[in-house]
Design a protein around this nucleic acid. Structure first.
Lengths: 238, 238
DNA sequence: ACCTGAACACCGTTCAAGT
DNA sequence: ACCTGAACACCGTTCAAGT
């Protein structure tokens, strides 16, 4: 995923005040929001800062967008703009695994992406494209239309839920200056020092609970789900 | 889940200004935050409103709590205060299903609960109690310590991800005045009217994608996961 | 020990007014 | 058609001052 800075389609240089900004489309707004998100996180993403990013005052945004919610919808779609489907090779399991791993990696790559994506009902055009492709592969693998629709929803919930859980605490922890390892160690220590009479399992399994890194956890869950999906197919297509 | 209003352990009646508020513990603060959340949603939960709820000014809260983040940690735990584990009867599948269904129902019952819970790393004492119990049942079912730890995390991510996805759009939709049925119908219409050449599957499967209600979708995903987990056990314990 | 007033640096949004 | 200044009703947080 290269090319972040200026899109170079239109030089966004400042214009004389009061004048229309030629490049100020909803699309440019979305990309500006993306840059602010990367720099300041979702908590720091304000209408005022996005406006400044495009060289305009906050009130002007309301000409292009109904409110902040709508800007977040735009951002949501922009976040998916450079997501790519996995190669159409291998069996359905490897393709589906590729989908989920890429989706996770894609969300992890942009700051607070999971938080932005999580609560938004309407899939933008870019996500629609991916859904269409994924459904196509599910049908081809032999899943019924009804099952395919359910599976698509299930995988989306899993990946988003997982990334949300790994992304926000990490962001919070890194704010306090600690790295991934330190956070895990502190969590293990917390479990280990719990009263053993009341929490025998948490104490005994402190390392199991905090040791495995998140890649391993993600793949574990994903493989369990894929195993479960296989059971829906006739035996000769598993 | 009854008994919401005043906990009645301490009458929170107003005191003379400047005087200490006897009932103003961190616990009382958490319960006040819970009431504000129920009334105003997470977006409307401000330090000022929580302070008013306990009859105090905003600045006073900083005596009891480092910042808003810490208040949200308290709220997070308060949200889990009256969660109950399912009965310890039936095989591991029904117990685990009970766990996930109850967790979902519990999150759905409180406004914006999934959003509060989602990004918080440190499980509060109430959640710890549930984790301990769940791990115990997993071990008893025959899962290894390592697998049990992974499974606990997997189920948590699934339920939270799922509820987050169903709760926030619904809240947004209901703000605009529409009910569940109308939202689903509008989504189906959106899929159905997409260009059929580019999105053949979305168009054809519009009803499958939007028809099943969320209870059905949740159970579908849950059963797939449970199927997948079964494969980890020796054949005689499935 | 605990609460307050006042202040600071922010928010999202509206609207009459500009060009 | 698009941008702006000014205003409104809010935020979280700090801190000297009160009791």
């Amino acid at each position: 995923m290269p090319a972040d800075e200026d899109d170079a389609t239109q030089p966004p240089g400042p214009t004389r005040p009061g004048a229309a900004h030629p490049g100020l489309t909803r699309d440019a707004l979305a990309r500006a929001a993306l840059r602010v998100l990367e720099r300041e996180g979702l908590a720091g993403l304000s209408m005022r800062k996005v406006a400044a990013e495009v060289g305009v005052k906050a009130a002007s945004l309301y000409w292009h967008v109904r409110n902040k919610e709508e800007l977040l919808d735009l951002l949501n779609d922009a976040l998916m703009a450079d997501a790519e489907a996995p190669p159409r090779t291998g069996d359905w399991r490897t393709q589906l695994r590729g989908y989920c791993r890429r989706y996770r990696a894609h969300l992890l790559a942009k700051r607070d992406a999971a938080k932005v994506v999580a609560g938004r009902l309407a899939p933008g055009p870019h996500l629609l494209r991916l859904m269409e492709d994924q459904l196509d592969r599910l049908r081809e693998a032999g899943f019924s239309p009804a099952d395919s629709a359910m599976i698509s929803y299930l995988l989306g919930a899993y990946v988003q839920g997982f990334v949300l859980q790994e992304q926000s605490p990490m962001a919070a922890a890194e704010t306090t200056g600690a790295g991934r390892r330190e956070v895990a160690d502190a969590a293990a220590e917390r479990f280990r020092t719990l009263p053993a009479a009341e929490f025998p399992n948490l104490v005994a399994m402190a390392d199991d609970l905090t040791g495995p890194d998140l890649d391993a956890r993600f793949d574990f869950g994903l493989d369990r789900i894929l195993d479960g999906l296989a059971a829906l197919l006739p035996p000769d297509r598993r």
